[in-house]
Design a protein around this nucleic acid. Structure first.
Lengths: 260, 260
DNA sequence: GTCGGGTTAG
DNA sequence: CTAACCCGAC
């Protein structure tokens, strides 16, 4: 089973690139982030034409996640609230969470808040959001032992996941508090699929549009698949496909694909 | 003497097309409308490189007119106020008027308000703007008997200046009040140069970007040259050059050229 | 800096 | 449909 994650930075702007990629790279489930479109306007038919079902949770202009799946998914829910009925509504106002089950494996597709700048209000929101995520996953684990969380985490856990030019310590997406918050989540029993196969640094999934950072390969690895133990043992590969980032008018992120 | 008028719908976006056209079609004066740029950012040097002087009156994002001339012009003024010092400032807040004299001929380059929709506030502004224009031209005629007014009038005076698909009566740019307001202006002693040479309909200078209207030739003739009697008698040709409208990323208007 | 969406205008 | 601006995001 292949599960891909791709922050497309607007599905409407990137539609042709995503459809082309999916034709060349058939996967069981494609997890999209930053679709930036309300559900009514999500372009379902291009995916239908390729034989894929769409499960979407979008909003106007910002955020938005989708699961594009060859098989139908079961137990699809959006946001934290269906699993954590008692949380405050602010955690689901932004559309960042969608999940569904395929062949006994729960896929959790996340768009973790970026956090803007250290010590900002958005940064605090990001850290607290990750504590909500942990409770959400704890609940899901009670229902299902096999879980693949993937998406844009907006966190690079290790310095080797960041190009050399930036000192991680006080940088958003790499601050100690962010890394600790993510480690706290993973402590539930998740392991990084990419690191099962590749230990060296210099592999990135996101390059800022600014400062020709892709040309200089000054990127970050912030798009991840985290697997529960049995899935992790079964994982056969985890690959970053850099090619879509080379196209004209690319997303700033590129797809990452795990095979289990 | 050749005088061309062209609503370029942003001189910065259309610069290459305008320069190319001018190379192929040298004219004495090119009257531009909808330059959509403040004077500081107007691209003067590409025209200088071709041997043309620029006289400009622009604003941010909207409107804006310019005279591009091989010879230097004299008596250049912008807006109504230099000629009508007592009018209210609202008539010159939008940059729609520039004039200058070449070889004893006054060129008046206009971008008449579009009017948006019949009975709207903008429609009323358009009608009143045309009464101000009449007083402006009346004053200019006292100084100079030879005048060529040209530009985007946003009015089609006759039904044959409009493609068949639209009933003129209640359409903006063709309503009785707009036509009457323009006829009131022309009554000062101006005649339509184009109609000296061509009497049949189906000749247009503007095609809406929407609804593939150029492909279907569903256009309007709203860009005009109006001449005082002696100039009208001298006029040798008046031609609409459709070719720029066929390019990719064209203006919605195409140039009209009078030779006197 | 660079992008995407939304808005306003035509 | 097209262009410019504004805004928010990164």
């Amino acid at each position: 089973m292949k599960i891909a994650t791709w922050n497309v930075n607007s599905i409407r702007t990137r539609l042709e690139q995503v459809v082309d990629w999916l034709k060349q790279n058939p996967v069981d489930v494609l997890c999209l982030q930053e679709t930036k479109v309300i559900d009514h306007d999500f372009p379902r038919s291009p995916f239908e034409n390729l034989g894929y079902h769409s499960y979407i949770s979008g909003q106007k202009a910002y955020n938005g996640v989708a699961l594009i799946s060859q098989q139908q998914l079961t137990d699809v829910t959006t946001g934290f609230t269906p699993i954590l009925p008692d949380i405050e509504p602010i955690w689901d106002e932004q559309k960042r969470v969608i999940t569904g089950v395929i062949d006994g494996v729960r896929i959790v597709n996340l768009y973790v808040p970026n956090g803007s700048a250290i010590a900002s209000e958005k940064y605090e929101y990001k850290l607290r959001w990750l504590t909500v995520l942990k409770e959400y996953l704890r609940s899901l684990l009670l229902l299902q032992p096999s879980i693949c969380i993937c998406g844009d985490f907006n966190i690079a856990l290790e310095d080797k996941d960041i190009h050399e030019k930036v000192k991680a310590e006080n940088h958003i997406m790499a601050s100690p508090a962010e890394r600790q918050a993510l480690r706290d989540v993973l402590e539930l029993g998740f392991a990084d699929a990419f690191r099962k196969f590749t230990t060296e640094g210099g592999h990135f999934s996101w390059w800022d549009y600014r400062a020709a950072s892709f040309r200089r390969n000054q990127g970050w690895r912030i798009d991840h698949h985290y697997l529960t133990p049995v899935l992790y043992e079964q994982a056969k590969s985890c690959i970053i496909d850099v090619s879509p980032r080379k196209l004209t008018q690319p997303s700033d992120h590129t797809p990452v694909i795990v095979e289990i």
